[in-house]
Each structure stands twice: as structure tokens, then as C-alpha cells.
């Protein structure tokens, strides 16, 4: 456990000056900022629709969720998986890392967990900023009715789903980035996978849930489609989420065997 902790601290120390780390913070700040600005400057028009508070929150948070879940999220995950490994490829530091008196599993697990941590941070900020900026909008435009509905459940559920459904992609991309030092291969495969995932998810192919790349889209689509007494109260652990977690677990173990067999030439 101690070596895992040490390796995690080191991962943070190494990456804190890189784009990968700052992307986790800047991405939610920029996207939420832009959406909030849109809701602020276009408040006249939006107020004209006379949304009930719940729908207003759904529209507002859906703007970020839609952009994020559909397109940015898969690429963000691909980029994270890449950069956590690339820091070692680029500097030719794998040999140094594996010549340290630390067990290989900790080194590997720390890298994986750090990528998970970055994604979590990013989505956590998305949820928090959506919540905070929503209330900020209420202060700036008092005619809004953001204060009449508590969106926490919606935000927590939606972002938890997005987070869990992205772990499958992360594990695939993590292995690709572990194997290949260059950017194009994992990025190319990830790009094709993402497009394929979005298409299969949208045409409603029966087995699209077996493609990790389609899981974030699927996870969020169901959140939108299901209509019930409270349309925003949806279950978190659905089929896509379980698929994603199973993918993540299996590929995580496979990745470890790749690492132990990895010859440092």
C-alpha cells in the first residue's frame, strides 16, 4: 500500500505542470463558464420559454452534459490515458521507474488510478461548477427560478454514470498507450472507436453496449429517454455501467501482465 501511495504522489508531482493535469481543471471551467455566459447573455430569450425550475436545470446542466458526454468525454479519456503513459515514453523513463525498489504492480496501478483520478476530478468539477454557476446565474438574473429545484441528485447521478461508463474506454486506451509510444496509434484507434460507438449507440444496435466507446453515449441517452414520475431521477447502475466496469476490471488485469512482461530494451 505504501508503494502505491508513493507512486501516486510521484505521478501527481510529475504531472502537475503538464497540460494533462490542467486540462482536468480548465476543461470544466471553460465549458461551464461558456454555458453560464450563454444563459446570462441570452436570459431574455430563455426566460421567454417559462421553463419550470426542474426543466430549467435539466436544460442548463444538459448543455454541459451533452457536449461532454457525447464528444469531449471519450477524447478526454483517450488523452488522459495517453498522457499518463506518454510522460514515461517521451522521457525514456520506464527503465528508471522499473529500476526503483518498488513493486511493478504499484507502479502500474498508480498510473491507472491517477488517470482515473484525473477523470474523476474533471467530472467532479463539472458537477460542482454546474451547481455553483447555476446559483450564480440566479443571483445575476433574479428572474430565473434555479433556486426552486435542488439539482444535486440529477447532477450526482448523471456525472456518476458518465464517470463509471468512461472507465471501459480508459482501460482500452490505457493499454494502447502503454504499448505504443506514439500519439497517433492510440488516438487513431480511439477516434475510430468513438465514432463507431456514437453511431452504434444512436442507431440503437442491440449489442452496442458491448463496445466500450458507446457506453457514455448510451448511459446519458437513457437518462434523457426514460420518462416517469420524475424524469431526472434515474438509476445509476444500469447495463452500460456494469459492462463498463467489467471491461475496466478485466483490461486492468491484462494491462498488468503486459507491464510485467514488458521488456525494457
Amino acid at each position: 500500500m505504501r508503494t502505491l501511495y508513493i507512486s501516486l504522489v510521484s505521478e501527481f508531482y510529475k504531472s502537475r505542470k503538464t497540460l494533462a493535469f490542467w486540462a482536468a481543471i480548465l476543461l470544466p471551467v471553460i465549458i461551464c463558464g461558456l454555458i453560464t455566459f450563454g444563459f446570462y447573455s441570452g436570459s431574455e430569450k430563455i426566460l421567454g420559454f417559462h421553463y419550470p425550475p426542474m426543466v430549467l436545470w435539466a436544460q442548463y446542466s444538459g448543455a454541459a452534459l451533452g457536449v461532454m458526454g457525447l464528444l469531449i468525454m471519450p477524447f478526454y479519456v483517450i488523452f488522459m490515458a495517453f498522457s499518463v503513459n506518454n510522460i514515461e515514453h517521451k522521457n525514456d523513463t520506464w527503465k528508471m521507474l522499473f529500476a526503483q525498489p518498488l513493486n511493478k504492480f504499484s507502479i502500474y496501478a498508480a498510473k491507472y488510478l491517477y488517470a482515473v483520478f484525473l477523470i474523476f476530478t474533471c467530472l467532479f468539477l463539472f458537477a460542482s461548477l454546474t451547481f455553483a454557476f447555476g446559483h450564480l446565474l440566479q443571483v445575476l438574473v433574479p428572474k430565473y427560478n434555479f433556486d426552486q429545484y435542488n439539482p444535486l441528485n440529477l447532477l450526482i447521478n448523471a456525472y456518476t454514470k458518465l464517470f463509471l461508463s468512461s472507465l471501459g474506454i480508459l482501460s482500452v486506451q490505457f493499454i494502447l498507450s502503454l504499448l505504443w509510444a506514439d500519439f497517433l496509434k492510440p488516438m487513431g484507434i480511439g477516434f475510430v472507436g468513438t465514432i463507431m460507438g456514437i453511431i452504434t449507440a444512436n442507431v440503437g444496435w442491440k449489442y452496442s453496449y458491448l463496445i466500450p466507446y458507446s457506453l457514455p453515449t448510451l448511459a446519458l441517452r437513457i437518462a434523457k429517454v426514460k420518462k416517469g414520475a420524475d424524469p431526472l431521477d434515474f438509476p445509476v447502475f444500469t447495463q452500460e455501467i456494469w459492462t463498463s466496469l467489467i471491461y475496466a476490471a478485466i483490461l486492468f488485469i491484462i494491462g498488468y501482465f503486459i507491464v510485467t512482461k514488458k521488456s525494457i530494451k
Partner: peptide, 15 residues
């Protein structure tokens, strides 16, 4: 490895 220090090929440095 706890008792060994090494410099292999090009030094492994984070640029």
C-alpha cells in the same frame, strides 16, 4: 534494488 543506484544509457530525466 534498494542497494543499487544506476545510470543506464541516456539519463532518465523528465524534461
Amino acid at each position: 534494488l534498494k542497494r543499487v543506484g544506476a545510470l543506464v544509457e541516456q539519463p532518465a530525466i523528465y524534461g
